[in-house]
């Protein structure tokens, strides 16, 4: 018998497949966006953490420098000539000592002594050229700022200001501007989260691809099997029964399952079968004497 539900089944499978694919794409997109956003947030959080740690480290450096240049316990370890010159009002010697001490024994890339709103002395790591006019001379609002360039070098730098209150010793108060290079640390953080993100994206895309393939297989074969079993076959059975009843070749009784969604159709076929039986019995009888010959009563 010719299958009359083929089109409906194709449409159903197409609709279910598209719905499942849409759902999968939505889920995969959600996780893709989540991975990207989480990775970005993690990078930013770690970058801020690294900056905060660097600022703390630089503050400690500033405190050490201040202690070395103001505490007699340390001052007496230095060349007494410098001390005497500073006490005599030659502040350049003090500033020079501060910048040399800072760059010499601390892991910093640039230090400047700022007095009266001007850079009075500065020093950078060997090989680095700094245009002091381009450097800040007043502390930023947060006490630090990040730079993407220091002199002729590009990267990620943290510039901190440390206050040295020398007025209590009869000198002008100073600021130390200390800049540390954190390019490699930032690259490490970004590299780590980029690798993590790429690994997660790769895994997600592979899993998503497999899920899409499986969903197509399940909706194509699984759904086809289930629809054939629970919808197509019962309908085909009804069609077959109807054909057989109309051809007079149906034997047995039409079974009506009250729980079936096709109960009404089954009932209709059963009624048809009963009526056809009554008809068959009526026709099988010999025509009565009053019955008319075809055509005789007509025209």
């Amino acid at each position: 018998m010719k299958r009359i539900v083929g089109t409906e089944m194709k449409r159903l499978m197409l609709a279910v497949t598209l719905a499942v694919l849409l759902l999968l794409v939505a889920i995969i997109s959600y996780f893709l966006i989540d991975v990207l956003v989480t990775s970005y947030n993690n990078t930013q959080d770690n970058k801020e953490l690294m900056i905060a740690q660097s600022v703390r480290t630089v503050d400690n450096m500033g405190a050490n420098i201040e202690k070395m240049t103001t505490d007699w316990e340390f001052i007496e370890l230095f060349n007494i000539d410098y001390i005497q010159r500073a006490l005599a009002g030659d502040m350049k010697s003090l500033y020079g000592m501060i910048v040399r001490l800072t760059v010499g024994i601390q892991p910093v890339d640039y230090v400047a002594v700022i007095a009266g709103g001007q850079i009075v002395d500065y020093r950078a790591k060997d090989g680095m050229t700094i245009d002091k006019a381009s450097m800040l001379v007043t502390p930023p609002e947060d006490g630090y700022q990040t730079l993407d360039r220091l002199g002729d070098r590009e990267g990620f730098f943290i510039s901190c200001f440390y206050s040295v209150p020398l007025s209590r010793y009869g000198f002008e108060d100073l600021y130390l501007n200390i800049v540390v290079d954190r390019t490699s640390e930032l690259q490490a953080i970004e590299g780590y989260f980029q690798r993590e993100r790429n690994n997660m994206l790769t895994g997600l895309l592979i899993a998503g691809g497999i899920a899409i393939l499986l969903s197509i297989l399940v909706t194509t074969f699984g759904l086809r099997f289930l629809v054939e079993k629970y919808i197509v076959k019962p309908i085909e059975q009804l069609n077959r029964t109807a054909e057989q009843i109309s051809q007079g070749s149906f034997e047995g009784e039409v079974h009506v399952d009250e729980k079936s969604a096709f109960a009404a159709l089954q009932g209709l076929l059963k009624s048809g079968q009963v009526i056809m039986r009554l008809h068959d019995r009526e026709i099988a009888k010999k025509p009565g004497p009053g019955s008319s010959e075809p055509g005789k009563d007509v025209g």
Partner: peptide, 10 residues
């Protein structure tokens, strides 16, 4: 339906 049934049966 009945047309087929009637023709076939007869």
């Amino acid at each position: 339906f009945l047309a087929k049934a009637i023709l076939n049966k007869n």
